[in-house]
Design a protein around this nucleic acid. Sequence first.
DNA 1: AATGAATGAGGATTCATTCAT
DNA 2: GATGAATGAATCCTCATTCAT
Lengths: 193, 193, 193, 193
Amino acid sequence: MPKIGMEPLRRSSLIDAAIQEVGRVGSLDVTVSQIAKRAGVSSALAHHYFGSKDQILLSALRHILTLYAVEVRRELAAVRQPDQRLGAIIRASFASPNFEPAIITAWLNFYVQARKSPEAARLLAIYQRRLRSNLLVGLHPLLGDDAPTVADGLAALIDGLYIRQVTAPGAPNPQTACAIAQAYLTASLKAAA
Amino acid sequence: MPKIGMEPLRRSSLIDAAIQEVGRVGSLDVTVSQIAKRAGVSSALAHHYFGSKDQILLSALRHILTLYAVEVRRELAAVRQPDQRLGAIIRASFASPNFEPAIITAWLNFYVQARKSPEAARLLAIYQRRLRSNLLVGLHPLLGDDAPTVADGLAALIDGLYIRQVTAPGAPNPQTACAIAQAYLTASLKAAA
Amino acid sequence: MPKIGMEPLRRSSLIDAAIQEVGRVGSLDVTVSQIAKRAGVSSALAHHYFGSKDQILLSALRHILTLYAVEVRRELAAVRQPDQRLGAIIRASFASPNFEPAIITAWLNFYVQARKSPEAARLLAIYQRRLRSNLLVGLHPLLGDDAPTVADGLAALIDGLYIRQVTAPGAPNPQTACAIAQAYLTASLKAAA
Amino acid sequence: MPKIGMEPLRRSSLIDAAIQEVGRVGSLDVTVSQIAKRAGVSSALAHHYFGSKDQILLSALRHILTLYAVEVRRELAAVRQPDQRLGAIIRASFASPNFEPAIITAWLNFYVQARKSPEAARLLAIYQRRLRSNLLVGLHPLLGDDAPTVADGLAALIDGLYIRQVTAPGAPNPQTACAIAQAYLTASLKAAA
DNA sequence: AATGAATGAGGATTCATTCAT
DNA sequence: GATGAATGAATCCTCATTCAT
């Protein structure tokens, strides 16, 4: 068993396991043992690699944010025209890897964790700033001074549609959710014109 | 000391204390002792009145939902014209008692709790249905078959604006948040026309 | 069982149990459970009253130092002539309550603990200062400037005789140990004359 | 890498590391990893060479006792007259290699370990017997039947002066400590005369 | 009605030790 | 010879909950 170079594999599978467990249990009240067992290792090993439960959860948060960032980058890379950037960002937010219930549940819980852990708060703030900035880049040429307000609205709408996937029974499916956000954008632009 | 009719007072102050503690700590990881201490009683008494910690938290959730329902009713009662119902509902969602950070934080945490506790899920589902139904009553005359989609969007936007108060640094203030939601409504109606 | 006013009784029996366990095991590697079990309570209760294992051990240290101080005071109170003070102090150091193996072992371990815990170091320093000061009060009229050196020697001799009770097989018994210390004093005075 | 004859070097550096760590931490609560890291090897290697943590500590104890024995032999070898043997033994006890804080702290802790480990107790007993015997050889010609008592006193005084280096703030420096022990000897002889 | 006393169950964390390479 | 990988067995500590008064 003990091969060399196990660390990255273990870290990765523990992070995955943490996200899945948070998704399964529905809260951050998961034990290190549960996470470790799902990853197929002992809880001692989890501590060996991460130092503490908090670090495991923080790494999981970082991973989730990375997944999201990857999706955004992928969608933006495919864009040819500047005015399609906004659509790309919206699509990224509803793309499948980020939109699984476990991931959404984890995300929801990390909103909570950010109220306790400064480091989690810092990471989420980075995400928030980046999203806002991305939206503004797309909105400013079209709306001028009205851009910030629409950006705030769009960000809130995306957030709301996102977490309602797991908090509101009968929430719209991903495609519909995406369409609602796109419609918000279209309507806001039309209203401003 | 043993006064008559202490029970409702005790229950009420314990519920308030629970909400404040959840708001202060930022998560449901509050101990019964913390809640009891804030309410000025022993933790044994908290159990005496509520039976368990879960029941305390559920009662707090019920209380929060009631506060919201009261606000909605108050706003709707002031409405004269049917087409002003939607504005009333939106206003209610951003009215001050519901919009304090402690309450929002508690609300956010109850979204989490609903993933673990069927009873909490049931209560939240009632709230979601009522909100949706209220919105549909106002939207249907104006939008026909498009009403459900706009209702979903509006509900999501309200939710998003709400939780971003505590999860997004630099989120719009209550008035602006309310204005954004109203603008969404206006724009959606205009776009449909 | 649950009567009122249990706290002082529990604290006292836990402290006794801690000293006995340290004496039995021979080191500070005693578990809170062992201490609690000997005191006839749960380990949770030990934590309830003391907050942490360190606090239990520190309280035990305080108790030991108090026992010693009591003995010194008792012997000094019985003294009529100033020049008998030194003999009283020496006697106190070898008096029976302080001279049980468990107590000596605990004392030895607290010397160790003082190298880790500032609070333990502080308490031991107080004991050292008080002993030195007591010795100097008696020695100064007799030896003048030579008093400090003899005081240091006497303190060291007492310490050495004390811990050798548990570290040197075949160490002199309490009476002999006491006589050795008294002889040291006599010889030092004679040598100075 | 695999060099021939690494074993004695590894063992030696691990023993040194163990003593230094015990001195640094102040107790035997040092981990094998800490010791191994200080010695620049993996903890697995430490086990490979010593078998267990206890064996590492026992070897360190043996090493300390050897250092002391070497010092005694050196001082005795330099002695010309039988009546100078006692002075030589006293000097050896306060000679620099044995008198570093880390060594003294380790020594103090080994007194503790002897209460748990029979093997440690055995080693310390050998040291105690040898010291006593050495002292008696020098004292008997001078004191006859009084020799054992003075030997016990001198041994206790040396022990006391020794450990007070690390347990009593403001303890006499090595030279003064040595002088105190010599003075004890002189005074005892004079008193007996 | 109210509480101090008490505990069982459980969780994070540490660490000596083993093993495959 | 040397080590990274891995774990079982503790141990401290917390907390919801119960109970006698």
